[in-house]
Computed example of a mutant assay.
Amino acid sequence: MATRFALADGRNTWARPIDETADDNGSSNSGTVIAARSGRVYVYGADDRPAGADGFTSYRYTIQALDADTGKVIWKTVTGEGDEASEPNAEQGASIGVPEGVITVHGAKGQQYALLGAADGKVRWKRPIPDSDTKTCLLRSAARNAYLVCQTWGEEEGGATGTSISQLDRTTGRPRWTVSVDGEKDVVGQADGRLVVLDTTGVRRTLTLIHATSHVMTTVRLSQPQPEGTTPTLLGDRLYVTSPSGGVRAVAPDSGRQLWESNSTVESPGIPVATASHLYLASPSGRLAALNLRTGTVEATLQGRDDGGTADFPGGGVGPPPTLAGDALYVPYGVRSVYTVDIRTLHDD
């Protein structure tokens, strides 16, 4: 479901299913919000056909634009249909929101990426994904630019042999420039005009900076190696690395220096959010921690809650990101619950 609730009192103003196809257990689990801007909410969902006489379900994936005020479907575009279609999941790098609309995987085999126009969902352009049989390609966005990140796999097992990063012209889909780096890497974000690129597997010992305009590439050695299994998030000009146990490290990406290390006490934290003074992390159960942005000291916590479904949270056991609106922090938890807290009161306590 995609739903809207009032910030003041949590009252739901509309809700709409974006995956209307139930699985064998009677539930549906495809779909998520891709982006929200200019009065519209872009979502992806499934619109599968029932199993026919042969017993096989026909898979069909769609992207929809919803009116933010009413939830009404403005347009709905099929991005792929058939057994080999690619799910346009934003979390897996298959769709991104841009000012012009949504860039997404497209085609019966997910062999293209295309721009669906914001006004009507029609394909404005489409381009082939290069060498899709030997590459895994992801769509990424940073500082209002779109990127195609393609990891090339060799004949031998053991990971990607190299990664190409292309900045896309949003009006044509063609690459403005492409750089190649060794190993399996991904774009985390942009800081001070430079893309921050990290290894996706193994212990991270370096990071790569790519200037978004000149595309000059620099390798920076990390003062402290970042353990395998941790999740990097770039917020402003600082890189935060979180672990499933609740550990948090703050790193300056321009120098690679580790600024502090802390235990947030939050299990399986999701993507953190930051203000000018604090970093906030939440668990799948809604446990919340506020860390001093300068020192990493845990200055406030709230106990978790339970809506009867935290074990089955669709994020795969990782906490959802809290959202900050003014001084109000909104914390999702469980499967379909959210609470809010005044961060000024939280810090006072």
Score class of each variant (00 low, 15 high):
residue 142 A to N: 01
residue 344 R to E: 12
residue 172 T to Q: 12
residue 224 Q to I: 12
residue 232 P to V: 08
residue 114 A to K: 00
residue 114 A to L: 02
residue 256 G to A: 11
residue 329 L to G: 09
residue 178 T to W: 07
residue 292 N to E: 05
residue 310 T to G: 00
residue 200 T to W: 08
residue 324 L to V: 09
residue 10 G to W: 10
residue 344 R to T: 06
residue 5 F to L: 15
residue 242 T to K: 03
residue 316 G to Q: 01
residue 37 R to M: 11
residue 19 D to N: 14
residue 29 N to A: 13
residue 110 G to D: 04
residue 76 K to S: 15
residue 33 V to M: 05
residue 278 H to I: 05
residue 250 A to K: 00
residue 33 V to Q: 12
residue 258 Q to G: 01
residue 335 V to D: 00
residue 4 R to T: 15
residue 134 T to I: 07
residue 148 L to C: 02
residue 335 V to T: 05
residue 68 A to L: 13
residue 203 V to F: 13
residue 155 E to S: 01
residue 215 H to D: 13
residue 274 A to C: 15
residue 326 G to S: 05
residue 214 S to N: 06
residue 128 P to S: 03
residue 16 R to C: 13
residue 298 V to G: 03
residue 220 V to C: 13
residue 283 S to E: 01
residue 18 I to R: 07
residue 118 A to R: 00
residue 322 P to F: 11
residue 166 S to I: 05
residue 305 R to E: 03
residue 104 T to R: 01
residue 265 T to E: 11
residue 24 D to G: 08
residue 81 E to R: 09
residue 17 P to R: 10
residue 269 P to A: 07
residue 115 L to G: 04
residue 328 A to D: 13
residue 203 V to S: 11
residue 185 K to L: 14
residue 135 K to Q: 01
residue 41 V to Q: 07
residue 200 T to S: 14
residue 31 G to M: 09
residue 333 Y to K: 03
residue 174 R to I: 15
residue 63 I to Y: 06
residue 335 V to Y: 04
residue 120 D to S: 08
residue 141 S to K: 05
residue 231 T to D: 13
residue 138 L to R: 08
residue 338 V to D: 01
residue 116 L to R: 01
